[in-house]
Structures are given as C-alpha cells and as structure tokens.
Design a protein around this nucleic acid. Structure first.
Lengths: 226, 226
DNA sequence: ACGGTTTTCCGTACAGTGCACGGAAGACGG
DNA sequence: CCGTCTTCCGTGCACTGTACGGAAAACCGT
C-alpha cells in the first residue's frame, strides 16, 4: 500500500503546467497591459514562469497566439437570450462590441489583419445575420448590411482608440489637443471650424453614426407588417 | 575664369544622395512589394543603395517612415475640380479611396494604428466636410456623417484585403474558399446559408453598403430646397 | 588657397525579436 | 525494468530598430 491518497500530493496527477487556455489568458492580459508591441513570446513565457520555447508545444507561432487572443476577447460579447426587435438588438450588440474593443484597445488594429474564423467570432455573427434576416433582408442586401455595420464599428473604435492611446494623463490630453488644434488651425482654419465638435464625445458620435446606418437599412426593408 | 559652367558637371551643386522624398518613395514601393512585414530599415536602405543609418539623417524613426508613406499614398487620391452634387461627389471620392487602398493593401491596417494628420490627409478631408456641409449638415451630425463614411471605407477595405492577401493564384483561391466553406458548413450551416453571397463581389457589396449610409444621411438632411 | 564649421554618410555595436533544433526529465504502458 | 511519448526548455541563428561616434565631403569667411 504505497503512499495512501491522503498522504500523496495528488494535485497534479497528470497536469501539464501549461495549456492553451493559460497561454491565451496570459496573452490577453499582456496585450491589455503593454499593447501589441509589448507582446513577445519571451515576455509571454516569463509571465507564465515558463521557458520561451515551452509555448511552442501548444501553439505553432506567435500568429496563432494572436488569433486565439482575438477570438478569446470576442467571446466576451455576451449572446442575448431574447432576440427582441432587430434594431434594439443590433444597437445593444454593437455597443457591447465597442465596449470590448475599448477594454482591449489592441483589437481593432488586429482585426484589420486577419480573418475572423474562430468559434466565438462565428457564434457572435450568427444571431447578427439572423436578426437582419428576420427583419426582412436577404441575399446581397443582407451581407452588405452586416458588412457595413461591422466595418463601421471596427473603423470607429480603431480611430477612437488612437486618441485614447495617446493620452494617459489629463495634462497630456490637453497638450495633445492643443497641438492638434494648432496644427489644424494653422493649415486649414475652415476645416477646423467645420469640425469643431471633435471634442471627446465619442459615445454620442458612435450612436449617431450607428443610427445613420440603421436608418439606411430600415429604408431598404420590404414595407411589410408588424 | 575657373571651370566654365559648360565644362563643369553641375548636376549636383549641393545634392545629397538621399532625401525624404526618395525615402518615402522607396518605402511605398517596398511596402507594395513585400507588405508591412517586409519593410525594415535595412531593406529600405539597401533598395536605395545606402547605408542603413543614413536614413536616420532624414527621418527620426521607422514610425516616421510609416507616417510619411501613408500620407504619400493618400495623396494619390485626386481632388476633383468641380464639386457637383454631394452624393455623386462622395461616391466618386470614396470609390477612389478604396482603389488606392487596394493598390496599397498595407494602408487600412496602418490607418488603424496612427492619426492621419499629414498634409495630404488634411487636404483630402477638407472638401469632404465641405460637401456634406453644403448638403445641409452641421455640428455633431456632420462629424458623425464623415466619421461613419471613413470608418466604413477603412473597415470594408481592410476586410477585403485580408482575403485578397491570402490568394495569389486561382488554385490557392479555390482551396481557401473551400476550406472556409467547409469550416463554416461544418460548424454552423444555417449561417453559411444566410451568407451565401460571400463570393467575391466586393465591388457590388461596397457600393451597396455605401448607398445604405448615404440613404441614412439623406434622410437626416433638412428638407430644404434644390 | 586655406582653416573651420556643417552636413551627409555609414560601420559598429547592443539589446531585443521569432523560432528551429535537439536534448533532458518525467509519466506512462508493457 | 525498459522503451515510448509527452512536456519542458537552453542554445543558437538570422534578423530587427537605433544610439553612438567617426570619416568624408561641401560650404563659408578670410
């Protein structure tokens, strides 16, 4: 009777220290903390207290890590149980997408680089198509509507994040804002006057643009029923 | 009378071999040929037959090169002499933006990273604001409309380029298309059925989405005159 | 014609990157 | 007790951006 269970340390009966899940979790944390430039395989391994090359047991390349991290945070968008009216549903869903991309500012630039084929990305786009299909869209109009909306959200948050990235302190904010304003006023004052509302009301701007697109979609719906 | 002009080789009275212009020109060519990953300061210098560190006489960092290259290709969008009706103008201008981003596929991912403050970018956005302003928009609605349109174009072409990047040969195209279709059908057949129009009609999709947004904008215009 | 200053060019060096290779250490099935 | 297989990872290579400092050339004032 060798080593009774009660005496044995059975915490790791056959447990690898690393795993894909642990790696992508650490990768997301690292990306959030240091940005895309801060993610190196060495830094990632260090954060997991592992040797660099150990990661390659679970992942073929750094690209894989990025793909996995991306799909991971896409999973943070929760799927709603009840569909409800299509327009409310889309606003809610896309607002949430934006929130995720703000929590993880490295996301928009990454999506511009790689196709989104991960399980979470697919799971999230399904009800999205379904909502617009139930509203009456089909065929090219349907895919165009979906494409327009996702392109808009990605593009908007990408632009937004550029500005957020360059300000951490209010002082830096004021200085940057001043420098840009000076730059603009100096070389095209009329444009600066037209676009004077480029103060930081990103929330309002986001919803405004979204409504614009949704109005365009609504106008294209078959003039049907309820 | 030393060295008459006619005998002197005055081709280079004080001509540095390098210049910012030559550097950004080479950078654009290199980016077009090799993609963003292929642009290294060493490769860039080699293409100019210069030492690597010579570049730093004209540019503070690689980031500078990217900013300059980006603004350079934005300059390829020609400014139209006659404004004309706002809607036609916007469609023409944005179609041209898309064409530029297709010629230089590295552009959309770059724009997602940095602010566009170069002279060409500013010069191009001015008539853009002006067109929508002349249509009757002002204040937040104006900036929202501009933001929506540019976000859409960026996002659309970014997504589009992802697919173009992965196919060079028709064989690769067919294989990729098959793999993706299989992947989709396997794990969510209904979605695949809804989105069956994801064949390569990017042109049509682009204009469809654009019309969507423009309809939304038109609906928001003050119900005024001619 | 000449000394000094400024501009251009760039070789070297350093810290950092992704990852190929091959070995070690341990868990497992026979 | 002996292979085999999985996990871990040290070393090494080719490559990156760029700090530093020196060489050479072009310019200017005398």
């Amino acid at each position: 009777m060798p080593e009774s269970i009660w005496l044995r340390d059975d915490d790791r009966p056959r447990r690898p220290r690393l795993s894909r899940e642990r790696i992508v979790e650490a990768a997301v944390a690292l990306l959030d903390a240091e940005g895309a430039a801060g993610l190196s395989m060495r830094a990632l391994a260090a954060r997991l207290r592992a040797g660099t090359m150990s990661l390659y047991e679970y992942v073929r390349s750094k690209e894989d890590v990025l793909d996995l991290a991306l799909d991971e945070v896409i999973g943070e968008i929760e799927e709603p149980p009840e569909p409800g009216p299509w327009r409310d549903y889309l606003v809610r869903q896309l607002t949430q997408s934006r929130a995720v991309m703000r929590r993880h500012p490295w996301v928009p630039a990454l999506t511009a680089t790689r196709p989104l084929l991960g399980p979470n990305a697919l799971a999230r786009s399904r009800p999205f198509y379904a909502a617009l299909a139930s509203a009456g869209l089909a065929g090219p109009a349907l895919t165009a509507a979906v494409g327009t909306l996702t392109s808009y959200v990605n593009g908007f948050v990408a632009a937004e994040n550029i500005w957020w990235a360059r300000i951490r302190t209010p002082a830096a904010d004021a200085e940057l804002r001043g420098a840009v304003a000076g730059h603009l006023n100096e070389r095209m004052a009329d444009l600066a006057r037209l676009a004077q509302v480029d103060n930081g009301d990103f929330d309002g701007q986001f919803l405004l643009g979204l409504d614009l697109i949704l109005d365009g979609i609504a106008a294209r719906l078959p003039p049907e029923t309820s």
